[in-house]
Structure formats: structure tokens, C-alpha cells
Design a protein around this nucleic acid. Structure first.
Lengths: 160, 160
DNA sequence: CACATATCAGTCAGACTGAGATTT
DNA sequence: CAAATCTCAGTCAGACTGATATGT
């Protein structure tokens, strides 16, 4: 059996079926939103032969022009340094980024995108944008963004 | 190096650092919300020695009283049958659920929680609720739920 | 026989921990 | 010497695919 696709998940009578508390509350809906969004984003990235998590590494590196470091990537993406080493190995192996010693602090390593890594990152970036434009009516982008901010603020209250 | 905790992620100047498109758009914020929420939920479940994904299997099984089947779980949770077999093996091994043959259709297997599985599921459930009550002011629960529904509707437009 | 259900075997991507090297 | 940065080795949870057995 093959896993049901995103659309199936979106359509099913989820809240009741998924056994989350009260089956109608904030929590259940938020869990569903997370699951659905995750699948949408992963699906878009994977159409370009890269996982969404790996794309985030490329995108973060690309933004930190001209270069960043493994530890900075760890901090931004919430990963361990051992795990990041493996991820960078993989992405470097694929030809999407390269590492070089930092001349000003030789404990450090500089990470930067290769042209092909930059192109890939931009392709996925574009695809994500196209998705956004496909689902968010032009007039509502602002409002929906503010709405997500509100949720971010709420969820961010955790652990404090 | 150890991975930064949720709070660190919530506080950092994420949108700019994370190289997502336009760094201020709906997309970036949504990605951040997903990442943050994922970590909060996983953290809560793991404090009870279970992954959030495994908890979802228990919760879904518990809701489908008195029993459900592996294929039903696959459909609801969007998983493959091979993977679900392994997950059920693990949860059965831990004593949280058990499988028995379905007398009415002997191709099928019935999955039901054990008392200990039910207790665990309820404990996590309770912890999730407590989290919700901690971050959502009583008067806003309704409104925030509706707000998540709106986003669900938007993201659900994908793949259609 | 075609279809549905579940499992098994094999494989794999990907992440973590802990120790160690290097440099500041 | 303490702290920071990165890498390596070992390990592991967890998911997938494809083939198979069984029952409808």
C-alpha cells in the first residue's frame, strides 16, 4: 500500500478521526495544519529532488552572503553540529555547496553555495512562491501573514 | 554541540536568517510556525517517553473504540502499510496496544489499546491540553481556532 | 481470478551522542 | 587552561519499497 497524498489528508474528516483532545479544539486544528503544511512544502521541494530540510540549509546559506558557517547554520536551524556535518557532506557531495577554511579564524569553516546550489535553491524558492500565489488571493496575503504572526506569538509562549 | 531549544528558535530573528523567499511573506512565517509547533508538540510527547507520531497512533486507535485496523490507521495518518506494521510492532512490544484477528474478515487485524496504552495516551492528551490552556487565553480559544481553520482552508487548496 | 489486508525482508536517509583535533 | 568550532565513528529510530501469504 502506498501512502495517501496530501489531498486525501486535507479532505478526510480528520478532527474526529485523529484522536486529539476534544477533537474540535485549537490543538487538533493546529496539529492538522502542521501536518498538512509539512507535506505540501516537502512535496514541492522533493519535486526538485531535494528534501525540504536540505533546501532550508541551502536557502539559509544563500541568504548569508557571501558565506556562513556550520555552527551558524546549527543555531538558525536548530540542529546539532554532528548532524550538520553529515548534512553538509551530503550537500557538498551533490555539488550544491562547498566548504573552505576561514582565514581569519582557523577553527572555523566557511560554507557557501556553488552556482548550481544557488540555482537549485532559487528554483525551489520560485516553486514555493508559485504555490503561495496559487493558494493565497492577492488581496489576502497581508492579512493571512498577520494571522500567522498571531499564531506564532501564541505558540511561541511555550517554554517561557 | 547540542541543538538549540524551542525557545531559542522562537526568539531569534528568524525570518531574515532563514533564507525563505522575501523573508517577510506568508510562506516564511508559515514555515516558522510549522517548525516551532512541531517542536513544541514533540517536546510534550517526549516528556512522556513517546514520539508525537507514535502518540498519534495511540490517540487515533483510542478514538476508534473499541478497535481499528492497521489499514485504517494508514489512511488516517497518511502512512504506508509496511511502515505501519513496524510502528505497531513497536507499540505492541511496549505493551501499549495489541493486535488480534478480526473474526468477521480474516484478512484483517483488529488493533486496540491496552489499559496502559490508554493511560499513556490520556496523559499526553492531558499534557497537550495543559499546554493549550497555558498559551491560549480562555476568551481567545474560539477565535484562534477559527483562525487556524482559515489557514487550513488556504493550505488545503494545494494539490486540488 | 482480481482485489484487499497485513507482514516480512531488505534498504535507506537522516539525525544524535560522545570523543577528539585544532585554534583562540 | 577553558572555550569554541568542526569532524568522525558509532549508533539508532523510523520510514519506504517490493514480494509474499492469506482471505474475500
Amino acid at each position: 500500500m502506498i501512502a495517501p497524498d496530501v489531498q486525501a489528508l486535507a479532505e478526510r474528516g480528520w478532527p474526529g478521526e485523529l484522536g486529539l483532545p476534544e477533537s474540535i479544539g485549537f490543538l487538533t486544528r493546529l496539529a492538522r495544519l502542521v501536518m498538512l503544511t509539512e507535506r505540501v512544502f516537502s512535496g514541492i521541494a522533493e519535486r526538485h529532488r531535494i528534501s525540504f530540510d536540505d533546501y532550508l540549509v541551502l536557502a539559509t546559506t544563500g541568504r548569508a552572503a557571501p558565506a556562513t558557517s556550520p555552527s551558524q547554520l546549527c543555531r538558525i536551524l536548530g540542529r546539532t553540529s554532528g548532524g550538520m556535518t553529515l548534512t553538509l557532506d551530503r550537500l557538498e557531495q551533490a555539488g550544491w555547496l562547498r566548504r573552505s577554511p576561514d582565514p581569519s579564524d582557523r577553527r572555523r569553516v566557511l560554507v557557501r553555495l556553488t552556482p548550481s546550489g544557488r540555482r537549485l535553491s532559487e528554483r525551489v524558492n520560485r516553486a514555493l512562491h508559485e504555490w503561495e500565489h496559487g493558494v493565497v488571493p492577492a488581496g489576502e496575503a497581508e492579512e493571512l501573514g498577520a494571522l500567522v504572526d498571531r499564531l506564532l506569538e501564541v505558540v511561541g509562549r511555550s517554554g517561557s
